[in-house]
Design a protein around this nucleic acid. Structure first.
Lengths: 126, 126
DNA sequence: CAGGATCCGCCGGGATACTG
DNA sequence: CAGTATCCCGGCGGATCCTG
């Protein structure tokens, strides 16, 4: 496997794919983007995203925490309070992530057009 | 929704998420990376990737074609021959994609360490 | 408030067999 | 060779209910 000029061993390739996979899952990127603005409580993330279930919000946050992108701070009051914040790794991954998002943003029309063209050719055949 | 300094309307956000999602699915990025080296036939992609099923290879290629990242050229010989190549859109998306991959590559150890630390704290509690 | 537990539908994705 | 068709399983992810 090669990426540009770099040779990549199989196991490394898998791990990288694993990290890239995190970009693909439904909520991770969104959460990272939100947390870049400022730290947030669990309930605030829930309100901001608004379409996420507690189950997936919790699971996604746990994964981000495990991978070292996010820190979780518990304040054992009643009612309890849990704050999430980006740590260094999380802020750094935002750099390439941001560029990809910007690319998608400025090229989305080309993708939409390509889809229209493709779908048109498919209609002809039916 | 905001990304850096840019405001993003809801529907656009969904579309961008959709494009980013393509990064997440199991084979798309790998195929794009392979095709950047040179155009390849269906069977060659199959051999290079080696763990992909025909079903997923075909489906992924169709999606990439529909979105305008890849071109499909059929030579109606017997046996038939189909070549795939990156077109402009595909080559351009490689730029931000490459940076993300490089980030993952050079930071994978930090992620691995974070996971070890996290898993260690979890073990204590059981 | 911040989750954990449970049930369940949907579909990504592999295995296998078949075709022009 | 380059697919299509079919079957099947695991897991994502939502909905609902419960708890310290």
């Amino acid at each position: 496997m090669r990426l540009g000029n770099i040779d990549i061993p199989r196991d490394t390739c898998q791990l990288v794919g694993n990290i890239l996979g995190r970009v693909g899952d439904k909520w991770s990127v969104l959460i990272i983007v939100l947390l870049r603005e400022r730290p947030m409580r669990y309930s605030e993330l829930e309100r901001q995203i608004e379409t996420v279930s507690k189950k997936m919000l919790t699971r996604t946050l746990r994964n981000l925490e495990r991978d070292g992108f996010v820190s979780r701070t518990v304040t054992p009051s009643i009612p309890p309070r849990v704050d999430y914040q980006l740590n260094d790794l999380g802020r750094e991954v935002m750099v390439p992530l941001d560029e990809l998002a910007r690319w998608a943003l400025s090229n989305k029309d080309r993708v939409v057009e390509a889809r229209l063209r493709y779908d048109a050719t498919q209609d002809e055949k039916e």
